[in-house]
Design a binder for these strands. Structure first.
Lengths: 131, 131, 131, 131
DNA sequence: GTGGTCTAGACCACA
DNA sequence: GTGGTCTAGACCACG
């Protein structure tokens, strides 16, 4: 369900965070569903428990999951986010970086649009629920 | 013309690379135009010459600029890049990361579209040139 | 009467201890009154009997309650504690932590005073009894 | 300047976070001042660099400090905080816990008031600056 | 069993 | 030199 690329330049813990958020958006991970334990996920990936722990801690800080000591970690329900101006700025910067890079290797706006639409299809669950 | 944010998490040399490529796309830097010398740019930003050096090396590696011994560095002409499959993969991953993050802070697809269009306006030169 | 939050970072057994002491201060639990049995309270909360057991042990250690074999646990009478220097130190540290945190999120001294007064109103029983 | 108590039940990294925030409020650490490096502070306390790193990471997340790779960590300027409702709730809970504990060991409201005033004297810098 | 903390030691990218 | 990441292995409190 979650796979990581140990050769990627993006840190493993970051990849874990990303993949889990993606799976939630896709509707694969549902609210209050139990996550694999730190040790279990570490064994599956495989990676070090500390690395998974770091990812889980980050996810908890972002209120994507919540942890109960002795019980495990669970998907948080209802993410009601106010739009954070700083976060918006950061995303815009990152998007610009992507588009400049793409433009530079000869990927034009149409191709980009195509890719974006495809991503949105992936991360939108089939049964659309009203927010 | 180029401004960098030393507090940003993206490395300074990377910021320099990005900004120069962006300026080329915008038509502000033109083919065969002379770049400022390493020391000069380092003094302007301001940053460490080693950092600028690293940025220039990276730009040269990507064939965005070329160097002539004893003369300086110049903008390369005609970016005719075939689409590199690995690069495409990387950009797609990065785009997905952006969109997931955006989705999570409550930025919907329409808003994203708006931002992307704005970016394209920025990075497209006024006098459109055929490649 | 007692509610616990299983998602809180403070351990459940600690929450139970706190709530019981609070209820005693409020005059809701009276001296020599019988406490619910471990199993009963565990069923009510709901939580694990082991957790309630741990809370009761802690309360007994602090002489807040006393147990009679085969009868149950009861609220201790007259909390006449001399001021323990270590405990005082601990409370002072904890208070400082609270005030620093408060200061940092923009809660000023007046607001803090207001909150403290409100708490004292809550934990003071209506019929004031001389100790 | 910073001392930690390795026997305390509060984690070392948390103690570091607290002490640094306290020192900032006291006016001992000033905006844009350089912090000791991760390794240096670890050597001074003494503790493990990873523990200090964890503290610094947390401080950076809270925007109390900012880090520049290759340069070091620095005190952030101007903490303009909106009052977070959840944080307020957490602080109130924690304060209540303190007051109940205090009440229980025989520290009355007057004594508490005295302690609080003393803490406020400590954490308020001599030259009061308008926020 | 669970998550939380800490240590020791390593490697990397960056300035 | 700096901070950032990762591994291996340990101990603890909690439920």
């Amino acid at each position: 369900m979650i796979t990581i690329d140990p050769r990627s330049s993006t840190p493993i813990y970051q990849q874990i965070v990303d993949k889990i958020k993606e799976n939630i958006l896709r509707g694969i991970l549902l609210p209050d569903q139990k996550m694999p334990s730190v040790r279990e996920l570490a064994r599956l990936l495989p990676t070090n428990p500390n690395t998974v722990q770091k990812a889980y801690r980050e996810l908890e800080r972002q209120k994507v999951i919540y942890s109960i000591r002795g019980k495990g970690s669970f998907i948080a329900a209802g993410f009601k986010h106010r739009i954070d101006q700083e976060k918006l700025q950061e995303i815009t910067e990152n998007l610009k970086h992507c588009l400049v890079e793409a433009h530079y290797v000869g990927i034009d706006q149409n191709k980009i649009q195509e890719i974006i639409n495809q991503i949105y299809q992936e991360i939108t669950p089939i049964k659309k629920r009203s927010k």
